[in-house]
Amino acid sequence: ATAMRCSHQLPPAHHIAQVVDQWAAEVEKLSEGDLDVEVFGADSLVKANDNILAVAKGDIECAFSLNFQWGKTLPIMNVTVGPYTMSSIEAWKKWPTSEAAAFLEQKLAEKGVKNVAWMFQTNVSVFTSRGRALTSPEDFKGIKMRGIGPAFDRGLTAMGATTVSMPGSEVYQALATGVVDAAITDVAAAYSRKYFEVQDHMTVVPVLAAYLHGYVNPSWYESLSDKSKAALDEAGKSAAQWALDASIQASADAPRQLEEKGVTVHVATEAENEAFKAVMQPAFAEGFAEETGEDGKTLLGLIEKIQ
């Protein structure tokens, strides 16, 4: 059997980490044991930010990254981080076989990795805060906020917030003590990381979509048998569906669980979302256009088709 080491950053209990495990078993099954997949989660083999280089360079065969992690290396991967760009579940259902996905796969191949799986992780985020809810762009003026990355944070800055970056392990206490006032996070994570103990208002917003995608080293992929390649292709398609189901499930339960913990949960209204979009979208789009040029425009056009 051919060893296939896959690194990712998610903790074992995360709903997408479990989809990765399921995907690994499926690959082994479909390849009839030709591929021996070993999953190393929780940053245990390669750190989150180093996965891309490790696979491209051939240190390991396979890894999963969140789209943020491509940063300036392949800025077009950030497209779904754009405020309200890929907010609907319907669009995500069409994603794996869409022209947009094929376009990104092409870009990844040109960069030097072969994409094998798209795992939609969330489109439900929360703005968490204490004392008052963040329901309009004006509410963000002058607050210190833990952001999620340069591309998305442009939108927060446009609303007047000051974004702070800090290691994940420090966020809870920073929120508890007011080193930062607010945060944006995936709604399920707000529950699993116990933000409800230190924040009492959360506004549910479909502001961004994040996905984890799996990719392998291209020359290693080329050396595989047709059966193994087909197994990867097939398992990738199944995993996209599993991830979608798991994410919808995770997002569905969280708001109620948060309310049970005493958080005032507010689901942003259409008008409120429009207001956020009006301020955040242009700020993001400007940076995105600058970094991605024609390719960015083409991709946004393709995404328009599946909305």
């Binding site: 360079k57 030097g112 990355g149």
Partner: peptide, 22 residues
């Protein structure tokens, strides 16, 4: 040496606010 050469040809940038070539 291999890592540096590879990072240059690959065009790897840091993921944070600095976004400098790795």
């Amino acid at each position: 040496w291999h890592t540096v050469v590879f990072s240059r040809t690959f065009g790897a940038y840091s993921t944070g606010y600095l976004s400098i070539p790795m």
